[in-house]
Amino acid sequence: MFKRLMMVALLVIAPLSAATAADQTNPYKLMDEAAQKTFDRLKNEQPQIRANPDYLRTIVDQELLPYVQVKYAGALVLGQYYKSATPAQREAYFAAFREYLKQAYGQALAMYHGQTYQIAPEQPLGDKTIVPIRVTIIDPNGRPPVRLDFQWRKNSQTGNWQAYDMIAEGVSMITTKQNEWGTLLRTKGIDGLTAQLKSISQQKITLEEKK
């Protein structure tokens, strides 16, 4: 169930391209415009997507990853294993993690069937560096609404905000991946996880038929 919630949630996290980005210092504006741009692209490019579902990787690479804190999220997933990894191991892992996100997020976007969304009203940021933004996803086919909290983090150097995690039903996506990959990290280390991520990233994206 959580895996499905995570995939549905990713439908609204794909941010804007650099040329049309919203105010990078306001995570609420980023979330709002990102959702609108993403849904528009999914709707307008269905012919290309249906002809070649792996085209979704391109959308992810162009529109999402430049505005997601990939390395920060990847380091959180590694936890204690990050500090013990060599620079070469980290570089290989982050490259594999990025390719994994292209496949995983692309597969999530393949679930698009006309969903709509509501974003919580903007709250004062103050001096906060981590801000959760509640998004409610509404399914046109009558499924119950899904309420999610996207975690946005302020870059201490640039002042810009980027998304790095999502919490559904009190469970963090980062925590879920830590639990899912924990045994592999304990037995085969970061190299074993890197190899698995490379394998997963090679899987073809498949479209979910409308139910």
Rank of each mutant, 00 (worst) to 15 (best):
I133T: 13
R143Q: 03
L64R: 06
I174C: 06
M6K: 01
L101A: 01
T158P: 05
T175R: 02
R90N: 14
T25S: 09
G182M: 14
K71F: 10
I119R: 05
V77N: 05
Y67A: 04
T187D: 05
M1G: 02
Q107L: 08
M173H: 04
A85Q: 00
G159P: 06
T136D: 01
K211S: 09
K43N: 07
Q178I: 15
I138H: 06
G189A: 14
R153W: 05
E33L: 09
G170D: 13
D61V: 01
I138Y: 12
T187P: 06
N141I: 08
A110C: 10
L109P: 05
M7W: 08
A92K: 03
Y82I: 01
A22G: 11
I190R: 12
V77R: 09
A195R: 12
P132C: 00
D54R: 11
P132M: 02
E45Y: 00
G170I: 14
G192C: 04
K188H: 11
M173F: 15
Q80M: 08
L56C: 11
S84L: 03
T194G: 11
T194E: 14
M6P: 08
Q80N: 07
S172L: 10
G106E: 00
N52A: 04
A92M: 02
A9E: 15
L185H: 07
L30E: 03
D127L: 00
V77G: 08
F97A: 02
L148G: 10
I130W: 06
K102W: 14
D32R: 03
K102C: 13
T58A: 07
E45I: 07
G126N: 15
K37F: 04
R186W: 08
Y164P: 04
I137W: 15
Y28P: 06
A96Q: 12
M6H: 13
Q48I: 09
A75I: 02
L185R: 07
Y164T: 11
Q123I: 15
A88P: 02
T38F: 13
A120M: 05
I59D: 09
Y100V: 08
R186L: 10
M111F: 11
E91S: 08
T136Y: 12
S172F: 02
G114Y: 11
S156Y: 12
G79W: 12
S17C: 07
Q162I: 00
P15N: 05
A88K: 07
Q80R: 11
A22L: 06
L76F: 01
T206E: 04
K37L: 03
E180H: 07
K211T: 13
Q48P: 00
P87M: 01
K211L: 14
A35F: 14
E99R: 01
A14D: 01
Y105L: 11
S201Q: 01
A168T: 15
E33A: 00
L193K: 12
N160C: 03
R186M: 13
I133V: 14
S156E: 02
P47D: 04
D23G: 07
T187Y: 12
V60C: 13
L78D: 09
Q123G: 05
P145W: 07
D54L: 00
K3V: 04
R153C: 07
L148P: 07
V12A: 06
A35W: 12
L64P: 03
T158I: 03
Q196L: 15
A73Q: 14
Q202W: 14
Q46M: 00
E99Q: 15
M7Y: 00
G189K: 12
A22D: 06
K210Y: 12
N141E: 13
R134P: 14
I190E: 04
N141C: 14
M173T: 08
Q36L: 11
A51L: 10
R4M: 09
K210N: 11
Q157I: 14
R134D: 13
Y55F: 02
Q89W: 00
D149E: 04
F94V: 01
G79H: 05
Q24Y: 14
Q196I: 15
E91R: 02
M31F: 02
V70R: 02
M1T: 10
A104N: 01
K188Y: 05
E45K: 06
G159Y: 13
W152T: 02
I49D: 06
A19Q: 00
P27C: 01
K37C: 02
I138R: 00
T20K: 15
A108M: 15
A168I: 08
Q203R: 09
M6N: 04
Y112A: 14
A163N: 07
G74M: 01
G106D: 00
F94I: 00
M6G: 05
K37R: 05
D40Q: 01
A9Y: 04
Q115C: 11
A95C: 03
Q36S: 14
